[in-house]
């Protein structure tokens, strides 16, 4: 079980799935993404965060 669906939680859940486990991802809000989804761009590539 992963508690929190921000970038950390989502990455952990994805990696665990790839490693062959069934994962429950628990997130308080209506969508995953957390604070990173609010960022406009990220350094250094200034890629869109989404």
């Amino acid at each position: 079980m992963v508690v929190g669906g921000g970038v950390a939680g989502v990455q952990a859940a994805l990696d665990l799935t790839e490693l062959g486990y069934y994962v429950y991802l628990v997130e308080k809000s209506a969508a995953v993404g957390g604070a990173m989804a609010q960022l406009d761009k990220t350094f250094p590539t200034n890629d869109c965060s989404l």
């Binding site: 921000g6 970038v7 990696d15 665990l16 490693l19 486990y21 990173m36």
Partner: peptide, 17 residues
């Protein structure tokens, strides 16, 4: 920051595994 967070997540996944 984000890269350290992402790294920790993969690491935690490895430990859980």
């Amino acid at each position: 920051d984000i890269p350290e967070s992402v790294t920790q997540s993969s690491a935690a996944a490895g430990l859980v595994s």
